[in-house]
Nucleic acid binder design. Structure first.
Length: 493
RNA sequence: GCAGCCGUAGCUCAGUUGGCUAGAGCGCCUGACUGUGGAUCAGGAGGUCGAGGGUUCAAGUCCCCCCGGCUGUACCA
């Protein structure tokens, strides 16, 4: 679509250009999340988008090039560098690189991360995460705090209680269940445990019968694509299913049930004890099952989590363009990862935290509370009726800004008609006109474009439209600012 | 990665069994309207039909391949 020899303007798949309103609402969301994190005492951290690939932890055991999934290249010294795919790997690097940091180290971080994977609806290759982590604390209080923060964050964003839920599980409990059922990876299937966890993770999509198939022989989806199963014995499958069906509506009851299922497994009992402490803390501050539930189907990430794992799900349903019902599912997650800093320090350092997917959450919220189609509140444009009056308009715009209004002078070229249309297209709330008439009379004309647009619907004939000049007033110049304020302009955009 | 569907103006699409200069609606520009965004009317700009190759007298239409998009699925630190 471009001329020969000229580059075609285009952008990378899975990347986006974002304009005004989208960025404004993202910034607002981030501000809200940060205020919650700061209320819990976390401090800000920023790290580079680019890291050495071995720092990111993305080298395959016996390969000299990075694993797929990240954007990577060789730097001027031929070292592999790559764009970060999350904010946790850079955090673990910071912990190891600055041993003088006070521990527990508690930081939040917001920023873009990059993943070289297939984009989908609401899934991009560059997206923003908003993380908080406590590094250097093994206390379940830290985990309970993560649950509380995730819950508080959702409500601070205006998501009503009941429209979201924080789901919590513990990897140690799952390990205990597998241990008691005799499920382990071996030579016949070195990835068996991994396959089992993947199967459980799919619970929300394929439901229990599908999970059963994946624990056993495998299943074939509607496109005819086969997925290999974990090939467990019927008794093992039943043991896992019993765990997945444990009650979730009551945390103490859940603890009793899983407690009996893992009895005799040291790791399992340890996990139950952790969850019990979390429940105790949450109950003490009144976070009931309308905010945080224990749910064995939460697995997450599958790789580095070592203890409690968290997931925030939006529970309301929406209709998409085709009228089909859709759920947003997971918008945030987290968990305890006691091994992550070990690869730098050679010793375990307990850590736990959470991560909120800003862009995904933003997409969900735009459905829950669609942005009002109104104009930028408090925006004023001073039009230029004649080139010789441009200086007058320029000065007027400055005067408005000095008074705290968001005002600009029309900088393009074109007739008044064009200027009105431009202001309308831009979403400007009010326009100010100073022409010869006004100048002579010591007045200004002010038009409320929003109100005018509403009134225009009543007007049929061009003559009436012109004669009545809906939503427009001419006032003494001294009354300009009060007039604008009465029209609903404020000092912010 | 695998599978299925789809690529025609800025956008949404139509285009009969291959057949003159490829159409519509919306949007955009200009004018009716000399100082007014809406509405109405009139006119206008804009497409080597995703790229390349092949079959044919003739290809937007048929075949091959590549690229891109959508959907499902797998993977997801």
């Amino acid at each position: 679509m471009s001329l020969p020899g000229r580059p075609e303007p285009r952008h990378l798949r899975g990347f986006r250009d974002l304009f005004g309103a989208a960025l404004t609402s993202r910034r607002r969301m981030i501000d809200t999340l940060v205020s919650v994190y700061e209320r819990y005492g976390f401090t800000a951290l920023e790290t580079p988008a680019l890291e050495y690939v071995d720092v990111l932890g993305k080298f395959l055991p016996e390969a000299d090039s990075p694993q797929g999934g990240i954007f990577a290249f060789r730097d001027e010294n031929s070292d592999w560098v790559g764009l970060r795919y999350d904010l946790t790997a850079p955090l673990s690097r910071v912990i190891a690189e600055y041993p003088e940091l006070p521990r527990p180290f508690r930081r939040y971080q917001v920023g873009p991360v990059f993943r070289a994977e297939k984009p989908g609806p609401g899934r991009y290759r560059e997206f923003h995460q908003c993380d908080f982590d406590t590094v250097g604390s093994a206390s379940p209080l830290a985990d309970a705090e993560v649950c509380g923060i995730l819950s508080d964050a959702m409500e601070a964003l205006g998501i009503p209680r009941g429209s979201y839920i924080v789901r919590v599980s513990d990897r140690k409990v799952l390990n205990g269940i597998l241990e008691r059922a005799g499920v382990r990876s071996d030579d016949a299937d070195p990835n068996r445990v991994l396959t089992v966890m993947r199967a459980i993770d799919k619970m929300d999509r394929i439901s229990l019968p599908g999970v059963r198939d994946l624990l056993g022989a495998g299943r074939v989806d509607e496109s005819g694509d086969p997925t290999r199963g974990a090939r467990l014995t019927p008794a093992q499958i039943e043991a896992i299913v019993r765990y997945l069906e444990v009650s979730r509506s009551d945390r103490p009851a859940h603890l009793r049930e899983i407690g009996s299922l893992v009895a005799g497994s040291a790791v399992g009992e340890e996990g139950v004890a952790e969850l019990a402490r979390i429940d105790e803390c949450l109950a003490k501050v009144g976070y009931g099952v309308d905010r945080v539930v224990f749910d064995p189907t939460v697995v997450r990430g599958l790789a580095y989590y070592t203890g409690p794992v968290f997931e925030v799900e939006l529970t309301f349903e929406v209709k998409d363009e085709t009228g089909a019902t859709r759920r947003f599912g997971s918008v945030a997650g987290g968990g305890r990862y006691d091994d992550l800093v070990e690869r730098f320090l050679g010793q375990k350092l307990p850590a736990t935290g959470g991560s909120i997917g800003v862009d995904r959450l933003l997409a969900a919220l735009s459905v829950l509370a669609p942005a009002p189609a109104g104009r930028m509140p408090g925006s004023v444009m001073v039009l230029v009726l004649h080139p010789s009056l441009a200086g007058e308009s320029f000065a007027l715009a400055h005067e408005l800004r000095t008074a705290g209004l968001a005002a600009e002078v029309f900088l393009g070229k074109g007739s008044l008609r064009n200027q009105m249309k431009y202001a309308d297209d831009r979403g400007i709330r009010c326009v100010v006109l100073v022409g010869e008439d006004e100048l002579k009379a010591g007045t200004v004309s002010v038009k409320d474009l929003q109100l005018g647009g509403e009134l225009a619907r009543e007007v049929q004939s061009r003559e009436t439209w012109k004669r009545e000049r809906p939503a427009q007033v001419t006032v003494p110049r001294a009354d300009l600012i009060p007039t604008l304020r009465s029209m609903g302009t404020s000092s912010t955009r």
